[in-house]
Design a protein around this nucleic acid. Structure first.
Lengths: 338, 338
DNA sequence: ATGAAAGCGCTAACAG
DNA sequence: CTGTTAGCGCTTTCAT
């Protein structure tokens, strides 16, 4: 029943060559005689020989595996990034291990052991909760680490991220163009990089528009629909006065929709809404939610390519940080204010 | 900069024991003297020793890796299954490699090489396009394969799947209870197991209700929103007469919504709609779509557990197929027909 | 262009 | 309870 697996020595014997030669053929070395190569190839075919990765890994000290740590695989935001990483990695002959931290910081940290015990050659952290300092330690010890979603100051850690400030400014400018002067900002976790930078862009844009910044118009959520709903309710109860809301992501914008529905506020007539991520759902609610689309696939692909490049060439080129631009997709939720 | 990595022999020397003893401590063998163990542990700590997985894998002939092949990582349907697999696998000390076939059958097949070249110990196929026969070949050759989403007749292939016939019957019974007698069925790919079985349940339920089966009320789609929309349009143009539609999945039900919007048909007043999968989106459209919820997480977890069990105990217990029940979640799209 | 030989780091018999 | 020994399957010098 169970097929006997042949090894390199079996192929070597059958082709009347040494294991070394078989290995050369297998790995595309060009210093093998064409006739010899054909004999080896023939033997490989006849034996249905498939190289055993374990032996290969141990000897070459490379796993050709790459881990991607995300905080929750179910979030569609990650799916596109993963796809970008995967396609690039596969085309460079790497396998991708997707690690789901299930929203637990401790699990994120655990996955770093995959790097240390040599299960993977490199690890990509996508919007992790780990601190820059902690990540830096690994890079300092020679491990290959990459970061997606935020910038880091470390010569050996490549990263790709969107320009959050610009992104937020675009949204605010758009809302201002629609005639809004009282624009609230629904932030995510107060200490998340995304929150901080988007808030910064929001404040800058207000200033550029000559609109005074009102701290009372900023409320924190947790990037979830429920959190956005609650935050919006708090904003309303506080008696704040505004005609537009910029939510730090679409989930929170959906929360605003829910709250508005409960409060009898109609969008966009009484309130303009805009979010970030442009998730599929934004196109299925009425009115459709204006949102900012990030080039997630590209962020994943470019980072993976860079990381693999560095592993193989050991070249630490100057270009280590990839800041990409997002683009605002205007839909009905933010249009038609008078 | 780069930390020197210590190996088992270094630990052994420092603790004044043999490598074998260190290995025993590492692997929790109970035939090690408590004092010796403490010395070894101490040495491990002092050296920051971390076992190298490559060596371990080669020697033990196990990778402790498990691959999951899905046709598209972006489909939320898979995310829950993956999560179930992952949690179970991790708790049993396995890593999970997620393989995205990106809707290409050829890629699905490629991933099987991970099994053959010993990159993974086992592989789980989730609703793959590969035929039973093809999968059986691998199992016959001693490779560990599991299947989620469909049943297979092979003593060495565990599988978990929902009772599609029952599920379809429930939907039809529900629609009939609402007074519908002319119920259309929007199938997926005609040759998909899910399509075939759901059609079977549909036909059976009609019979049970004393409703004659009308082949003209069945139309095929491709499980996508666009496909569902087109299929519904075809159904309408054919002049078929019906008051309810059972879509083989939610994406197609969304397509029906789109088509109805274009045709000016109001749901549920003029047409009742029900789908399968109960994806998040079903709760964000108006009216919310009645749908069938499958225990995806459980399907993943139970299959992973079974597969790993079999690998380790080599026990091929009688229980190999896990048929699980789905449950209908009735919402507004299918209620209130008169 | 090819072969011989030496391990990569670990575990598993087998002794003791 | 512990050590010795022999590889797991492969690649890679170093010769030739």
């Amino acid at each position: 029943m169970i097929m006997k697996e042949s090894k390199i020595i079996d192929v070597a014997r059958r082709a009347n060559v040494s294991p070394a030669t078989v290995s050369r053929v297998l790995n595309g070395s060009n210093l093998v005689n064409a006739k010899t190569e054909e004999r080896v190839l023939q033997a490989i075919r006849e034996l249905d020989y498939i190289p055993n990765n374990m032996g290969k890994q141990l000897r070459s000290r490379k796993t050709m595996n790459l881990a991607v740590v995300v905080s929750d695989v179910r979030v569609s935001y990650y799916a596109e990034i993963i796809k970008g990483i995967e396609n690039m990695a596969n085309s460079l002959h790497y396998n991708v291990l997707i690690c789901d931290a299930q929203n637990e910081k401790a699990k994120e940290r655990e996955f770093l052991s995959l790097l240390m015990n040599r299960t993977v050659d490199a690890l990509i952290l996508v919007t992790p909760n780990l601190s820059d300092e902690e990540i830096a330690v690994y890079a300092d010890n020679g491990y290959m680490v990459g970061l997606i979603g935020r910038k880091i100051e470390h010569a050996r850690i490549p990263c790709s991220f969107t320009d959050n400030i610009k992104l937020a400014q675009e949204v605010v400018f758009h809302l201002a163009e629609q005639g809004h002067r009282k624009i609230a900002f629904l932030s995510g976790y107060a200490d998340a990089t995304d929150s901080i930078e988007r808030l910064e862009g929001y404040v800058k844009a207000l200033k550029a528009c000559g609109i005074p910044f009102e701290p009372a118009l900023v409320e924190n959520g947790d990037f979830s629909e429920e959190g956005g709903c609650e935050a919006f309710h708090r904003l309303c109860s506080s008696g704040a006065d505004f005609t537009a809301v910029f939510a730090a992501n679409d989930e929170m914008a959906l929360g605003v929709y829910k709250a508005c529905n409960e409060l009898g506020i109609s969008i966009p007539e009484q309130l303009a809404v805009a979010g970030v991520d442009n998730i599929r759902l934004t196109n299925y609610v009425t009115p459709r939610i204006s949102s900012v689309e990030q080039p997630l696939y590209a962020m994943g692909a470019v980072l993976a390519e860079k990381l693999i490049d560095q592993m193989n060439d050991n070249v630490w080129a100057e270009k280590r940080c990839f800041k990409v631009d997002a683009k605002l997709v205007v839909k009905e939720s933010s249009k038609g204010a008078e």
